[in-house]
Amino acid sequence: MIEQIWFPLVITLKIAVLSTLVVAVVGVVISYVLARRDFKGKWLADILVTLPLVLPPTVTGYLLVVLLGRNGALGNIIYNLTGWSILFTWEAAVIAAFIVSLPLMVKTTAAAIEAVDREFEYAAFTLGRKELETALFITLPLARKGILAGIVLSFARAVGEFGATLMVAGNIPGRTNTMSLSIYSAFQGGNNELANMLVIILVVISLLSMAITAKLVNTWKV
């Protein structure tokens, strides 16, 4: 039983941590651009980023399969270059988690950046600081509560990801059976004892990440 718990736990955390790291970096950049820049087709970019939030995860998963499959636009290039087929690997699960959690990160972070008074940025400009420096040392630190909230939401979403992961990574025991997928399998197979353990662990992880965040935010004055 310990092995039936240990592998899903490790693979889930690995997928969630990796996808959250990428979401944090990519999400902050996209959020800043959406919040502070005006460009043609901004509305379209906004819709594209938000889309996975409203699409059923199975649809997102299906579209990813089409894109990443050996005959898909992106999958084909990867296969020809490396001979590696990305579908049904844990890396595919990272991509699925990334896509479904990105809108949560961007929506939360963009709102936080928009809420930063532009006068702080103008003040930094008049003090000789360029936009990149200002973004890194003024705007983002002042939006950090929103950024952290986005990261926590994205992590939670990645840990709980089910539908899209099932589509692109399958539920291959010992390879891609994440916690959520394992709970489903255990429940289907009538192994209630295992399902209970997995559920308890997931609830504990979720509560811990919330508690740590709340503690951290409380020590921040701004």
Partner: peptide, 19 residues
């Protein structure tokens, strides 16, 4: 650019960096 104008600007609400 603003950065190269060498000016001091004091805003109505001070705009001190709170962090």
């Amino acid at each position: 650019p603003v950065q190269e104008r060498s000016l001091g600007y004091v805003f109505q609400n001070y705009a001190l960096f709170p962090h």
